[in-house]
């Protein structure tokens, strides 16, 4: 450091909370006076400011990811119920699929900067844009889910020999197949939506995140079915709850280990860490509850609610972790420097 006579007149250094963002690569939770600090600089950031911008999305987007997941899982339960002749599961699955996709769609539109231009989403088909691909998946799924729901209504028309009832019966198999087919990408593409960004934690999680999301989708849909179906018909829901929760928890564990340790850090700390820990507890409890108490109506309902809450917290936690990773430059700069230095060592 250089000194000149004027330095003596400088006011004392104020603590600058964000300034340390770029330093120390995760070390130094307690910020000391900057001027006393031994330079343990790993990189110099621009005043600790973010390098990439966090997505401008509000809670609508994780809510949509959650609702899309529950809609997709429910549609599978509805289709399973239709194929294996379980009317309660069929009914609840179909209604939940349509309700989920409708609410999810509304959340998406609400998050737009210009909601009145929502239909511009269908202006083109663009394979490099997961959001464009997703808009088409959502539209197709919504169509099939809508027809499935109408078919369900058609089953309770008083005159089953009217042309309307017969038309709806004819439409039922294709609608069921279609909604089940589009349910799968609907629940998994949202992981690509997050990963195909420069947001460090989302991008780095791309190998495991789709598995976390589909497990979570199935667990949440099973949870909803546990709440809405009588106990004597809920065996598939109980099993799906356990399988889905198991896949979600296992995939999340694997994902953490698969990621660059620094970039996985936002998943463990702060608000995101709290949400994801709560999600693990609720999902585990819900799966255990569904397995052990699922034959009891009340036990099934409580377990179902825990699974739904766990699934929602997973989505909000992952979402929040990504935003946090974009705000702190160390998550962007450190892995990039490592990658670059690696390349320079072995060209």
């Amino acid at each position: 450091m250089t000194t000149n006579p004027l330095d003596a007149d400088r006011p004392p250094e104020l603590p600058r909370p964000r300034r340390g963002g770029g330093r120390g690569g995760g070390r130094g939770r307690h910020r000391r006076d900057e001027s006393l600090m031994v330079p343990d600089v790993q990189f110099e950031s621009y005043y600790g400011r973010q390098v990439v911008k966090p997505a401008p999305w509000k809670a609508d987007i994780p809510a949509y990811i959650f609702l899309g997941g529950i809609a997709g899982g429910s549609s599978l339960i509805g289709a399973g119920g239709a194929v294996t002749g379980r009317p309660a599961l069929r009914r609840t699955g179909r209604y939940a699929a349509l309700a989920g996709v409708a609410l999810g769609g509304l959340a998406l539109v609400h998050d737009l900067g210009r909601p009145e231009r929502a239909l511009n989403m269908l202006r083109t088909v663009k394979l490099t844009s997961p959001m464009s691909v997703g808009s088409w998946i959502l539209t197709a799924f919504g169509g099939f889910a809508g027809v499935s729901m109408l078919c369900e209504v058609g089953r309770s028309l008083p005159d089953q020999r009217s042309w309307l009832a017969r038309a709806l019966r004819a439409a039922e198999p294709p609608a069921t197949i279609g909604s089940a087919a589009f349910a799968l990408p609907l629940a998994s593409y949202t992981a690509v939506l997050l990963s195909d960004t420069a947001t460090p934690t989302w991008r780095e999680s791309y190998r495991g995140l789709p598995f976390v999301f589909v497990g979570s989708a199935n667990a949440a849909a099973a949870g909803l079915a546990l709440i809405t179906t009588p106990a004597d018909q809920n065996r598939p829901a109980r099993r799906l709850a356990a399988i889905g929760a198991g896949v979600e928890l296992g995939a999340a564990e694997w994902m953490h280990h698969d990621m660059h340790p620094l970039v996985a850090e936002p998943l463990r700390q702060g608000r995101a860490g709290v949400m994801l820990r709560a999600s693990r507890v609720l999902t585990t409890a819900g799966a255990l509850g569904a397995t052990l108490l699922g034959r009891n109506r009340v036990g099934a309902g409580i377990s179902g609610a825990a699974l739904i809450a766990g699934s929602a917290l997973t989505r909000f936690g992952v979402f929040e972790a990504g935003l946090a990773s974009a705000r702190d430059p160390k998550y962007t700069v450190t892995p990039q420097r490592e990658r670059r230095d690696q390349r320079r060592r072995e060209p």
Partner: peptide, 13 residues
Amino acid sequence: QAGLAAVAMLVMA
């Protein structure tokens, strides 16, 4: 990865 996950989702159901 998402495609594999979609298959996994179907298998679970």
